[in-house]
């Protein structure tokens, strides 16, 4: 979610199979320097994809000698997912971060094969996306600040 000169990203910690809760401590947000990546979907792919991007972002940092920007990360995620067009990772990623050069907040979401959703306000993902769409659409307004 975008606010005044800030972004926020949040996830629950539940890991379950439909109604059965398997774990109460399964984080779904991963940090890559200045960029945060949220991953919902198939848990094994959440782990695989988060590790894959840790490797890719580390390689980027070694090559470029700088942190990856949220925009570049978005394109990296998109092309990496589309590479698996006919055998996709079952994840719906969300990116949030501040661009270190411009200072502007940036968020975006993806489907499982890498189509980017550049939203100006908020991105939701996962099993409660309908509920989150309703609350965000009802409560979000431009230039929100942290309490």
């Amino acid at each position: 979610m975008v606010g005044k000169d800030c972004v926020a990203i949040a996830c629950d910690l539940r890991l379950g199979m439909q109604a059965l809760t398997v774990s109460n401590n399964f984080p779904k947000i991963f940090s890559y320097g200045d960029v945060y990546l949220g991953l919902t979907g198939l848990a094994t792919d959440v782990s695989t994809v988060s590790d894959l991007f840790r490797y890719k972002v580390n390689m980027y940092r070694l090559r470029e000698e700088r942190n990856i920007s949220p925009q570049t990360m978005a394109n990296l995620v998109s092309s990496s997912l589309y590479e698996r067009r006919f055998g996709p990772y079952f994840v719906s990623p969300v990116i949030a971060g501040l661009n270190q050069t411009t200072g502007k907040p940036f968020i975006c979401g993806f489907d499982s094969i890498g189509c980017i959703d550049f939203a100006k306000d908020f991105i939701v993902s996962g099993t409660a996306s309908d509920q989150l769409f309703g609350t965000c659409e009802g409560l979000w307004e431009p230039d929100l600040v942290s309490a």
């Binding site: 309908d130 509920q131 989150l132 769409f133 309703g134 609350t135 009802g138 409560l139």
Partner: peptide, 13 residues
């Protein structure tokens, strides 16, 4: 149709 969108908003407000 939109109960899943509206109900959590109502719970909160």
């Amino acid at each position: 149709a939109a109960a899943s969108l509206i109900m959590p908003f109502l719970d909160n407000q």
